[in-house]
Amino acid sequence: MIDLEFLINTLSLGSLYALLALGLVLVYGILKLVNFAYGEYIMIGGYGLYFSATVLHLPWWATMLFAVLAAVVTSYLTELAAFRPVRNKSANALIVTSFAVSIFLQNAVLILVSPRARAVQLPAVFSRTVSIAGATTPVRNLIIIGTTVVVLVALSVLMKRTVLGMAMRAAAEKFTTTRLMGVPANLVISAAFIISGLLAGIASIFWIGRSASVDPVTGSAPLLIAFIATVMGGMHSPTGAVVGGFVYGLLFNILSITLPAGMISYRDAFMFVIVVLFLLFRPEGIIKGGYTEERVG
């Protein structure tokens, strides 16, 4: 059953999940915030696609740019308006705030747009299929893999080679000490939210592209995937998030093939049970180390 088609499928699913998980863990690393509003950045990205295509009539590449921008702006604005004021309150206050932000954004879209799903068209090239060495796969899968490689390389260059990246890594390790270097707290936190929004925006193109529609609660499924992938891979480093994403993609595909038809609707439940059992034996996830648990205060 492990053929090239399965491999490409798993790689593309894993890539998408890795992007999702990475965006979540970047903010977690610095702010120690489990961001429940993260799924809404993806949802807003989806509406960005819809809005720019049907209302602004932009060409397809511009709609994608618009979607990413929408997600980035949303992420940054939520940081400014909600997370910054509660930043030095308790950890639960931050999480509850993110949950409230999530509910707010969902309902704002519900009021302003519609509770009904909106169709989103991606260019035809996405759904065309090609065959490589006998395996047939949609072009979309290859684009996802390619984009993820580019994003991961760009992100690691940013984190390793730029001062901002160094400051972000330092802040994830020791937040107060980083400020004692003269690095503004707001700079690294805003940067984390902007990059998180960027990853959410890119992921939203592929996520929405698969279902070809967007509705106010679109964000909950990718949020959950990001959650599970990060706890599985390890909340403590970006590497952990990426590994978690790919492992989760693999697990998902294996369960899809092996579960009997009657049980397939329980797939998600099975997945969580596996993850929880795994965490029992290894609470820090697959990848250890990296970020500490020091809280911003």
């Binding site: 001062v163 160094m166 890594r169 330092a170 390790e173 020791k174 980083t178 004692l180 270097m181 690095v183």
Partner: peptide, 23 residues
């Protein structure tokens, strides 16, 4: 120079010094 050194253990010596020069 904080108590207990407080250097960035995950960062290289070079990166530690570069951050020191941040301002």
């Amino acid at each position: 120079v904080p108590e207990g050194r407080d250097i960035f253990g995950q960062l290289t010596v070079e990166e530690n010094l570069r951050l020191g020069a941040f301002v």
